[in-house]
Design a protein around this nucleic acid. Structure first.
Length: 716
DNA sequence: AGCACGCCGACT
DNA sequence: GTCGGCGTGCTC
């Protein structure tokens, strides 16, 4: 035996030595060598070391652990398979002559290598769970990219990307793949500039990238299906991610119409673990080349990816709630780059991020001509404060005359949609005169009313003594509060002969018949009406615009447009009345039906103010000392700017704890870190390095833990 | 997170 | 001499 153990060599360990190592350690400790779990068994001849991603907590950020590969597992222990390994503390317990280093944990073989850099004795793989290669090179690279982008751990991302195993699903053979279909016609894409060119490029095997502003109506599902069909025709696969189950159903039906049965898989969370894994395996094995699904499907292992599609990227359900909270749009952007495939972002509305993809030249806009938009969209009218003040009837009936008339006229020949706000929106401070949001003069964060009175910035915490509106010079502020649900109820009473149906969180209606009815719905739950609604009444203006959120305008417009898209075009008499100040940018954009213009202007403003997505931000939250210690340790890029920390609102007792929020009773702080464009990668790696550095020493366990979130969703 | 190791004070 | 307090550090 050449050495007692490998620790002195420091230069890696050869295969022959591995077999001797455990014994060497024993003898060094003066113990008698006894049969171990693998000692004595032959090792794999080639590449006897497996680098394993251990699926255990987040304590070891992104580290791989080396294990010896016994000869009998050589063939199956391929990169990408699930394994079980012993993983535990210290030297391990010696019990009954057998070394047991902790319990068995799950993991994935990431790589097979000839030698290990680890200087201690290697344990052997305990078990190869199945020979199915579930974490192949492409998925691994994607998971790495997502982990890097979000300063998160590879293990966390892999947990999101690879569904739990079901042995029964794995045993069943997946059906043989169908040959590529014929190229479908461009269909509805002809209505858009660059539309037909986009699908033709896909059919030719190209990788076009587009931001598509869809015309109102339900045609989008079919357009998505045709883009998928064109990609399949080129011999490649396609992936479509939509916000919810209703949209999955729509795209599923459209794919069946355009492509026929058996060409696509549906991946949704509510399918149940076995069915979900079976569908996922059919995709992994290449039995089906196209996928439609909700958020988790963004990682679907589609073979030869030719196109990724995200529909309605502004919808909140595209944000993954689990660490590191990646967003579907960003994951698909990463996939498009890594797989060099086509990219399609479609929406009736437009996010600033989508606008940025076009402005930067990365994607081409696919938009309909103006006159096409005008005839497809309903006529939009506004009711503002001044109208309300002049309107005697409105004050009496709590319903503006114009709105009342629109409902009455609409009910003559079809259903009328009434959009009411959900409860729980936080009021923010705004200029009492012009309604401009009150922002911090130092960092442009939102001003909030302090508990003891007075104003302070929600980002950097600086107090504001002498606020003055930069728009109109006003000095008085008002808090925005709303309550419009009652208005909708009163509306029902005003039209007693008409049935009232509701759709909301508790019960979401999918469709309603094309007969006169009042359909009261919260945003996002609007049923589709057969033949389209005759009119819509949008009553949640202030609730939506009054939120202390950077996206308040964009989000209000997105929800209004989503509701208004279900209304008949103005040529068929479709009318929308929005109760909101007509001078506001989002309201004007709705009237002009110009979500893209709105997003472009928002983007320019964000660039000027140093807001995301032009700058990149990350939040660090935890106990005050922990946040301070973290920031002290972190070697942030020199351009980074730290805002705050400021106190985080406490979690009220009994209320469920928010993800990354303080447990009830604890006082937390949050700091924001922002970097200029192009430095997002540097910020993420610095944050990750700081987390690793603080792991263990000086972190004080749970007390010292901080939450790091890249692209936080809820920054004022 | 667990869990073992180790360095110090009180005990048979 | 040795049992066990918990502070520290590692897990291939």
């Amino acid at each position: 035996m050449s050495s007692v153990n490998g620790s002195g060599s420091g230069g890696g360990v050869g295969a022959e030595q591995l077999a001797l190592m455990r014994e060497g350690v024993r003898k060094a400790k003066g113990e008698r060598a006894k049969p171990g779990t693998w000692r004595g068994a032959a090792l794999a001849g080639e590449l006897p070391v497996a680098r394993v991603l251990v699926d255990k907590g987040v304590l070891h950020l992104d580290r791989l652990f080396d294990y010896a590969v016994p000869a009998e597992l050589d063939a199956v222990a391929q990169p990408g398979v699930r394994v079980r390994v012993r993983f535990g503390a210290g030297r391990g317990k010696v019990r009954g002559g057998r070394r047991e280093g902790g319990g068995l944990v799950d993991g994935f073989v990431v790589e097979r290598v000839a030698r290990s850099d680890y200087s201690g004795p290697l344990a052997a793989l305990a078990q190869v769970v199945s020979s199915e290669v579930v974490l192949g090179p492409e998925l691994l690279a994607l998971a790495r990219g997502v982990a890097d982008r979000y300063a998160g751990s590879l293990a966390d991302v892999v947990q999101l990307a690879v569904p739990p195993r079901s042995a029964r699903a794995e045993r069943k053979a997946s059906p043989a793949p169908l040959p590529p279909p014929a190229v479908p016609s461009a269909g509805g894409w002809e209505r858009y500039e660059n539309g037909a060119a986009f699908v033709e490029a896909l059919a030719r095997g190209g990788a076009p990238r587009a931001v598509w502003n869809a015309l109102p109506g339900s045609g989008w599902g079919e357009e998505v299906a045709r883009a998928v069909g064109a990609t399949l025709a080129s011999g490649r696969g396609a992936l479509v991610v939509v916000p919810d189950g209703r949209d999955v159903g729509r795209v599923d039906a459209a794919l069946r119409d355009v492509l026929g049965a058996g060409r696509h898989a549906v991946l949704t969370a509510d399918a149940g673990p076995e069915k979900r894994y079976r569908e996922w395996l059919a995709v992994l094995r290449g039995s089906v080349r196209a996928v439609v699904g909700t958020r988790a499907a963004m990682f679907a292992p589609v073979r030869d990816l030719g196109l990724v599609v995200v529909w309605d990227d502004g919808d909140g359900s595209h944000s993954e709630p689990h660490a590191p909270q990646p967003h579907v749009r960003d994951v698909l952007l990463l996939r498009a780059a890594q797989s060099k495939c086509g990219f399609l972002l479609g929406s009736w509305s437009c996010t600033v991020e989508a606008a940025q993809l076009v402005e930067s030249g990365w994607a081409r806009p696919v938009v309909a001509r103006r006159e096409q938009v005008r005839s497809a969209a309903p006529l939009v009218r506004t009711v503002g404060d001044q109208d309300l003040a002049r309107d005697e009837a409105a004050r009496a009936a709590r319903l503006p005359t114009l709105a009342w008339q629109a409902v009455r006229d609409g009910l003559r020949d079809g259903p009328v949609l009434v959009q009411v706000p959900r409860r729980g929106y936080v009021p923010r401070m705004a200029c009492a005169q012009c309604r401009e949001a009150a922002r911090c003069r130092h960092c442009a964060g939102p001003l909030e009313g302090k508990d003891g009175g007075g104003l302070a910035c929600g980002w950097c915490g600086r107090g504001e003594m002498a606020w003055r509106c930069p728009e109109c010079g006003g000095v008085r502020l008002r808090a925005q509060v709303v309550g419009a649900r009652r208005t909708a109820e009163e509306l029902g009473r005003a039209f007693p002969t008409v049935p009232v149906r509701t759709s909301g969180r508790e019960q979401v209606l999918d469709t309603v018949p094309g007969v006169p009815a009042l359909v009261v719905s919260t945003p996002g739950a609007e049923p589709v009406a057969e033949g389209g609604y005759a009119a819509a009444l949008l009553l949640d203006g202030w609730a939506m615009l009054g939120r202390p959120d950077l996206r308040a305008g964009e989000e209000a417009l997105r929800r209004w447009i989503a509701a208004a898209s279900l209304v008949r075009g103005q040529e068929e008499g479709g009318t929308v009345v929005v109760v909101a100040e007509p001078t506001l940018r989002a309201v004007q954009a709705l009237v002009r039906w110009d979500p893209v213009g709105h997003a472009v202007r928002e983007l320019a403003e964000r660039a000027e103010l140093g807001f995301p997505p032009v700058s990149r931000m990350a939040s660090v939250s935890g106990r005050a000392e922990a946040v301070a210690a973290f920031l002290a340790v972190a070697e942030l890029p020199p351009e980074a700017e730290v805002l705050g920390p400021v106190p985080v609102p406490v979690t009220p007792a009994g209320r469920p704890r928010r993800v990354g929020g303080p447990p009830p009773g604890e006082r937390w702080e949050r700091a924001l870190v922002r970097v200029p464009p192009g430095r997002g990668g540097a910020l993420a790696s610095a944050l990750k390095a700081a987390q690793v550095a603080r792991m263990g020493r000086g972190s004080g366990g749970e007390e010292g833990r901080v939450w790091v979130r890249v692209d936080p969703a809820d920054i004022g």
